[in-house]
Design a protein around this nucleic acid. Sequence first.
DNA 1: ATTGACCTTCCACCGCAGGGGAAGGTCAAG
DNA 2: CTTGACCTTCCCCTGCGGTGGAAGGTCAAT
Lengths: 129, 129
Amino acid sequence: MRIGEAADAVGMTTKTIRFYEDRGLLPPAERSANGYRDYSHDTLSRLEFIRRSQIAGLTLAQIQGILRIRDDGITPCTHVRDVLGKQLMDLDRKIAELTALRVTVAEQYATAEGADPQRCDAEQICSYI
Amino acid sequence: MRIGEAADAVGMTTKTIRFYEDRGLLPPAERSANGYRDYSHDTLSRLEFIRRSQIAGLTLAQIQGILRIRDDGITPCTHVRDVLGKQLMDLDRKIAELTALRVTVAEQYATAEGADPQRCDAEQICSYI
DNA sequence: ATTGACCTTCCACCGCAGGGGAAGGTCAAG
DNA sequence: CTTGACCTTCCCCTGCGGTGGAAGGTCAAT
């Protein structure tokens, strides 16, 4: 199947598929006699794996790491578990950071809500921030 | 004061200060006879305002919007309140997204933790994701 | 007179995940 | 035999917030 059909099948653009090949997430594509990329069903499941991984918030570099292990003929289970564990820690850290930031901004917003614009000091641009 | 002293005073690099001038967050700097930028205390408080705003997670574009209003001689209080309100909503949305993602990843991690690598199917690359 | 620490402008680059569009080749249908 | 829909490679652009470095000017101290 040609690249456009593959793209339609997995809901990506042809640009994205070529980009993944360029980045090494896909092996160099087979070519038809006319030079067009020719994809098999294997590529589709690989693309779908990439999409599922992205939904889990993994970066292309992390996904590539998993694919490389699979391509070496090794089951990537252990590595995947580690990557997911790291992703959990990253998410916890980000959520904690944003939650702390939310507290700060909520205080500033509360101040700005019930404040007197007269007291706004040009010297420091804005007294709420 | 020269740009290096200003940078030291507020804990930024000279590169960053020139970048802010280029982006319009600072007015074109006064120049000494030798062409060096010459900063007054006003610029320092402006730079400190930028820093405080960044700590609140505002983008340079949002900060610029506030500064522009102040530069027009208007107290930016109302605008600041709106920006902070939008920032609160953005934070809530991001926290909700990350929390939902965390649930998904935690499930995948739990599966990967107690799973049998024998059942790992090469067809779909990895059965946990 | 020269060294070293500043300063100036300008252009390019980082990560991240692609998108835009030009210039040209290929193929089936009308 | 031309039109239109594909495909190819190529390089540049996006947003975000800067950072790096080259080539050159300035100034105080030695």
